[in-house]
C-alpha cells in the first residue's frame, strides 16, 4: 500500500465515527429523543417528582413540621373522606367547574366569531379579551376581591341606582352562598375565556373559505351556516379549549382562596383550596395531599379522553 493510500485509509477510518454520529442524528428516532429529552427531564423534575411526593404523602402521616414519614395506608384518605365538609367540597368543585366552562363554551364561540369579523379597533378588542389571560391568577383574584368588597364595591352603587337595593343597603356579593358561588364562577369564566377564545379563533380561521362560499351560494343564511357548518367543524376545537379550561378551573385554588376563603361557611370551598387549607395552613400535609389526589382521577380521565379523541381523528384522517 502506498503512503498516500495509507493516509487516505486512516483518514477514512478516523472520519467514520463522526459520520456515524452525523447519520445517527439524522435518524428521526435519535434526533426526536434528543430534542424531547430536555422537556421530558423538565416534566420529571418539576411535575413528576412532586406528583410522586404528593402520592407518597397521602399514604403517610407527614406534617409540615416534620420530615418523619410513617406509612399510614389508607387512613389518611379515610380521614379526608370522613370530614363532614368533604362531600360539599367535592360538589362545589364540580359545580363551579361545570357552570364556568359551560359559560366559556358559549362565550368563547361568540367572541371568536366577533373577533374573526372585520371592524374598526379589532386589535384593541382582541387586546382587551386577552388581558385576563396575561394577568396572574392571584392578581386577578385580588382585583376582583376589591371589586366585590362588601363596602367598597361599585356594584352597590349600580344596584342602588337601579333600585335593586335601597339607599345604604349592600349587595354583599361574597356574603351569600349563591352569590359567592356565582362570583367564583364569574371570575373563573373571566380568567379561562381568553385562552378558549384564542383556540376557537384559530380553529375558525382554519375552516376552508370555499365551504362557506359554497353554502352562501346555496342560499344558507347566517344561522344555517353557523349551526350547520361552522360550529360542527369547530366542535373538536371547542372541546379541546374546554378541556383545558376544565383542568385549569378544577385545579385552581387561588381564586377561591383569595376571593372567598371558601366561605361563606364552606359554600365555595373546592378541592384545591380545601387541600391547601388542610395541608399548608393546618399543617396536615398528608390529608392535604389526599384531598388534592381526589382530583387526579378526573384529570387523568380528561387526559385520556383528549388522547383518545386525537387518536381517533388521526385514524379517520
Amino acid at each position: 500500500m502506498s503512503r498516500i493510500d495509507a493516509d487516505t485509509t486512516s483518514a477514512a477510518i478516523r472520519a467514520r465515527p463522526a459520520r456515524r454520529r452525523r447519520y445517527a442524528l439524522e435518524r428521526d428516532g435519535v434526533l426526536g429523543s434528543l430534542m424531547l429529552g430536555p422537556a421530558v427531564l423538565y416534566l420529571v423534575l418539576v411535575v413528576g417528582y412532586p406528583l410522586v411526593l404528593a402520592i407518597m404523602y397521602s399514604f403517610s402521616d407527614v406534617t409540615v413540621g416534620s420530615s418523619r414519614f410513617d406509612f399510614a395506608g389508607l387512613a389518611t384518605f379515610k380521614t379526608a373522606i370522613h370530614d363532614p365538609h368533604f362531600p360539599a367540597v367535592v360538589a362545589h368543585t364540580f359545580i363551579i367547574t361545570g357552570i364556568s366552562q359551560a359559560l366559556v363554551v358559549v362565550l368563547c364561540t361568540i367572541l371568536a366569531f366577533t373577533l374573526a369579523a372585520n371592524f374598526r379597533g379589532k386589535w384593541f378588542v382582541r387586546f382587551l379579551v386577552l388581558m385576563p389571560w396575561t394577568t396572574p391568577v392571584a392578581l386577578g383574584a385580588i382585583i376582583w376581591l376589591w371589586m366585590l368588597d362588601s363596602i367598597f364595591t361599585p356594584f352597590n352603587w349600580f344596584a342602588q341606582q337601579l333600585h335593586v337595593i335601597g339607599p345604604g343597603e349592600q349587595l354583599n356579593l361574597l356574603g351569600h352562598a349563591g352569590l359567592a358561588t356565582a362570583s367564583v364562577i364569574a371570575v373563573q369564566t373571566w380568567r379561562t375565556l381568553p385562552l378558549a377564545t384564542v383556540i376557537v379563533l384559530a380553529g375558525l380561521s382554519s375552516i376552508p373559505r370555499d365551504v362557506e362560499e359554497q353554502a352562501e351560494v346555496d342560499g344558507a343564511g347566517f344561522w344555517r351556516r353557523l349551526f350547520g357548518i361552522q360550529i360542527p367543524l369547530l366542535a373538536p376545537v371547542i372541546l379541546v379549549a374546554v378541556l383545558f379550561g376544565i383542568v385549569f378551573t378544577f385545579t385552581d385554588m387561588a381564586v377561591v382562596f383569595i376571593l372567598t376563603g371558601g366561605g361563606p361557611g364552606d359554600a365555595t370551598q373546592v378541592l384545591a383550596s380545601w387541600a391547601f387549607y388542610k395541608g399548608i395552613n393546618g399543617g396536615n400535609l398528608a390529608v392535604g395531599a389526599a384531598d388534592a389526589l381526589f382530583m387526579f382521577p378526573v384529570l387523568l380521565g380528561l387526559a385520556i379522553v383528549v388522547l383518545m379523541m386525537a387518536s381517533g381523528r388521526r385514524e379517520k384522517s
Binding site: 411535575v47 404528593a54 385545579t251 384529570l299 388522547l307 386525537a310 387518536s311
Partner: peptide, 30 residues
C-alpha cells in the same frame, strides 16, 4: 381541519399538557 388541529406529536403535547397542568395544580396543593 383535522390536519390543521391534530397531528400525532400534537396529540402527545396536548395530552401531556393537560396532564402537566392538572398535575401542577395537584402538586401545588399537596
Amino acid at each position: 381541519l383535522i390536519d390543521s388541529v391534530v397531528i400525532p406529536r400534537r396529540d402527545l403535547l396536548l395530552g401531556g399538557g393537560l396532564i402537566v397542568a392538572g398535575a401542577m395544580g395537584l402538586t401545588a396543593c399537596a
